[in-house]
Nucleic acid binder design. Structure first.
Length: 567
RNA sequence: GCGGCGGUCGUCUAGCCUGGUCUAGGACGCCGGCCUCCCAAGCCGGAGAUCCCGGGUUCGAAUCCCGGCCGCCGCACCA
C-alpha cells in the first residue's frame, strides 16, 4: 500500500463512516472547509480532552482555561501586528499569470527596500520604472493587497470593521489583566483556550491539513523574564529530537537528540519554559499514538518566523501522502504582544513584583541653583533653567570643571550647577511579562491520529485508535439476535455502559463476523458478545480489536473492567 | 491565482472516444427476511444516481462545446 493509497483510503473511510468530509458538498463544496461527522466530532472531543488534561489540568496550579470571541475589532489586529504582517502586496503578471510579492519583486529588481509601501505607491513605482514580469517579461497588473484575515463588519455601519481571529492568542493578551488579577497576581501564569480560528489561505490544498477555518488549542504562558522560575523537567522525561535553524541554514538535516533542560543549557532552546512546553507536547504526542522517533521539532529560520516570535519550533509528524506535517508551533513571543496592546490601548499591562529585599540605589543628579540664576539674569532666568534642565550628569560635570559655559549668549558660572547624590529605595519593580506559546491544530491532530491508527488485516480495515481516543469504547452484540434472552442481556449491558458515561454501540444486524468488522473499522477497542453460556453462568466474552483475542468475564463486571482500562 | 488531468448510487466502477438501444448496468456496503452460538458465509427481497453546477449545439446530451465549482499534480502562496 503506497502512502498515497493509504491517504485515499483514510479519506474514503472518513467520509463513508462519518469522521469528516468536505463542507457544503451539495453545492459543490468550498475549498478549505471540512465538516466533522458523528465519529469525527467524538474523536475531536477526545483529542481536546486529552490536550486539556496535559496542558491545563496537569498544570492547574499555573494554567487556566478561558474563552474569548472569534470576532475582534480592527484595532486588536492593528496592535497585534496582523494587519501589517498578515497583508501581502501582490502583483499578477497579465501574460503568464504568475503572482509576486510586489515589494519583494521591486527589492530584487531595484535593490531598494520597499517594505511597508502601499499598493498605489508600489504600482506607480512599477509603472514609472517599467518593471516587467521577471519570468516572461509580460506587463504587470496593478498591485493589490492580499490579507489572510477574514474581514467582516459589526453592526449596520460599514466602517465598523472587524476581523475573524487567525489565532486564539489575542484573546488571552487582551484579557490578560483580568485573568491575572483573578488569579491573585501570580506568575508564571498560563492562559489556555480552545476555539475556532480562520485564515483566508490563498490556495488551500492538502485536504484536512490546511483549512481556512479550524480549531486551535493554545496556551499563552506568561512569566517574569528576569526570574522565570524553574520548570519541573522530571515530569515529562525523555529527549527531544531537534533540527536546528543553524543546521538547516547550512543545508543539513542533522537531527540532534537532547533532553529539554540540556537544550536550554546549550543554548539550543532560548527559553526554559519554551523547552518545558515542548516536553509536554512530546508526551502529549505519545498519547496520540506517536512514538518519539516519529516526532521532530524543527526550528524555524528567521525569515520563516512570525513577526512576533524570537524563536519558533514546529512540532512535525510524518504522515502518509503529505510527509512531515506541523501539528504544533512553539513560539517565544517575548513581551511583543502585551507591549503592543499597552501602546495601542493605553492600558498598563505591566506586572508589579516586590523585591525580596528593598534595593537602595544611589544616583547622581544635576541640581540647578535657581536663586543664583535669578540674581544674575532676572527675567531671563527661566529660559536658562529650561536649557540647563536636560543636561546629563557628565555634561554638567564638564561645565563645572571648565568653570562655566555660555548658553544663549549668557555666561553661566560654574556655581550655577552642582552634582548631588540621591538615595532611592526600590521596593519592587514593574515589567511586561514574557510569553511562550504552544499551539496545536485540532483537525490536523485528528488526521494524524487516523493515519497512525489505520491498518488493514486481510482486506479488512482495523482502526487501532488508542482506547482513550476511540469515539466508541465498546460494542455489545447478542450472538443470535432472534434469541430474545440474549438480546435482553445485551441491551442491559449497553444501557449500563451509557449510564456509566461510556459511548457504546448495540448491533444485532448480520453475522457476528460482520459486526466485528464494522466496529473494527471505526476503532471500537472492545466488543462484548452475549452467547448461550451467558444464560448459564452470567459471563460474556470481551473481544479485543487489535489481537482478536477473547476473554470471559462476569457480565456485571464488564463496565467496571472497561472503565478501569480507560483510566 | 496560472497550467495539466479528473468529477456517474454511500464506496469502487461500466457506459463517454464513435450522441438515440441508458427508464444509467455491476460489485461492495446499507436496510428487511430466512439461516447461523464467534470473525465482512449463504439464500430471498428492498432502498439508493440533480450522470458536479450553469449555459450552448442538436429532433435528441452522462456522452460534443463554453463558463463555473470542487479535487489531484506542477508553479506561485503558506505570518
Amino acid at each position: 500500500m503506497s502512502s498515497s493509497d493509504k491517504y485515499e483510503k483514510i479519506v474514503d473511510l472518513a467520509a463513508r463512516r462519518g469522521f469528516f468530509w468536505p463542507s457544503y458538498e451539495i453545492y459543490g463544496g468550498l475549498a478549505g472547509f471540512y465538516d466533522l461527522g458523528p465519529l469525527g466530532a467524538l474523536l475531536k472531543e477526545n483529542i481536546r480532552k486529552l490536550w486539556l488534561d496535559y496542558f491545563v489540568l496537569k498544570h492547574q496550579d499555573m494554567v487556566v482555561l478561558i474563552e474569548t470571541p472569534v470576532i475582534a475589532p480592527e484595532v486588536v489586529f492593528r496592535a497585534s501586528g496582523h494587519l501589517e504582517s498578515f497583508t501581502d502586496p501582490i502583483v499578477t503578471c497579465s501574460k503568464c499569470g504568475k503572482i509576486y510579492r510586489a515589494d519583494h519583486l521591486l527589492e530584487d529588481v531595484l535593490g531598494v527596500k520597499f517594505e511597508g509601501s502601499g499598493p498605489e505607491e508600489l504600482t506607480s513605482i512599477i509603472r514609472g520604472r517599467g518593471v516587467k514580469c521577471p519570468s516572461c517579461g509580460g506587463e504587470l497588473e496593478d498591485v493589490r493587497t492580499f490579507n489572510l484575515l477574514f474581514q467582516t463588519n459589526v453592526g449596520p455601519y460599514k466602517h465598523d470593521v472587524a476581523y475573524l481571529r487567525p489565532e486564539a492568542a489575542q484573546g488571552m493578551f487582551t484579557s490578560f489583566k483580568r485573568v491575572f488579577t483573578s488569579m491573585r497576581y501570580s506568575l508564571p501564569l498560563g492562559i489556555a483556550q480552545v476555539g475556532r480560528v480562520a485564515r483566508n489561505e490563498i490556495s488551500p490544498r492538502q485536504g484536512m491539513v490546511r483549512l481556512r477555518e479550524f480549531t486551535i488549542m493554545e496556551v499563552e504562558f506568561f512569566f517574569d523574564p528576569e526570574e522565570p522560575g524553574e520548570p519541573d523537567f522530571s515530569r515529562f522525561p525523555g529527549k527531544l529530537r531537534i533540527l536546528t535553524a543553524e543546521a538547516r541554514s547550512r543545508g543539513l538535516d542533522e537531527v540532534i537528540e537532547v533532553k529539554p533542560e540540556e537544550a536550554v543549557a546549550e543554548g539550543i532552546i532560548m527559553n526554559k519554559w519554551l523547552a518545558y512546553w515542548m516536553s509536554v507536547a512530546q508526551a502529549f504526542a505519545r498519547e496520540l499514538g506517536l512514538s518519539d522517533d516519529e516526532v521532530l521539532f524543527e526550528e524555524k529560520l528567521p525569515e520563516e518566523r512570525a513577526h512576533y516570535s524570537r524563536q519558533t519550533f514546529d512540532q512535525l509528524v510524518s504522515i502518509s501522502r503529505w510527509g512531515w506535517v506541523e501539528i504544533s508551533g512553539h513560539a517565544y513571543r517575548t513581551d511583543y504582544d502585551l507591549s503592543r496592546h499597552m501602546r495601542f490601548s493605553g492600558e498598563d499591562m505591566t506586572v508589579y513584583k516586590e523585591l525580596k529585599k528593598p534595593v537602595e540605589t544611589v544616583t547622581r543628579k544635576v541640581v540647578i541653583n535657581q536663586e543664583l540664576l535669578k540674581e544674575l539674569f532676572g527675567a531671563d532666568a527661566p529660559k536658562i533653567t529650561q536649557a540647563l534642565k536636560n543636561l546629563r550628569v557628565d555634561e554638567a560635570e564638564k561645565i563645572i570643571k571648565e568653570g562655566g559655559t555660555i548658553i544663549e549668549g549668557f555666561k553661566i558660572p560654574s556655581e550655577a550647577l552642582r552634582i548631588e547624590e540621591v538615595k532611592e529605595i526600590a521596593r519592587g519593580r514593574r515589567f511586561v511579562p514574557h510569553v511562550v506559546e504552544p499551539s496545536f491544530g485540532a483537525e490536523r491532530l485528528l488526521l494524524v491520529v487516523l493515519d497512525k491508527a489505520y491498518t488493514e488485516e486481510s482486506g479488512r480495515v482495523v482502526l487501532k485508535l488508542p482506547p482513550k481516543l476511540a469515539p466508541y469504547k465498546l460494542a455489545v452484540f447478542p450472538l443470535i439476535p432472534k434469541e430474545e434472552s440474549l438480546k435482553t442481556i445485551a441491551k442491559k449491558i449497553y444501557n449500563d455502559a451509557i449510564k456509566a458515561g461510556l459511548t457504546a454501540i448495540y448491533d444485532e444486524n448480520g453475522s457476528i463476523g460482520r459486526r466485528y468488522a464494522r466496529v473494527d473499522e471505526i476503532g471500537v477497542p472492545y466488543a462484548i458478545t452475549i452467547d448461550y453460556q451467558t444464560i448459564e453462568d452470567n459471563t460474556a466474552t470481551i473481544r479485543f480489536r487489535d489481537t482478536k483475542e477473547q476473554i470471559r468475564i462476569k457480565t456485571d463486571e464488564i463496565i467496571k473492567w472497561i472503565l478501569n482500562k480507560l483510566s
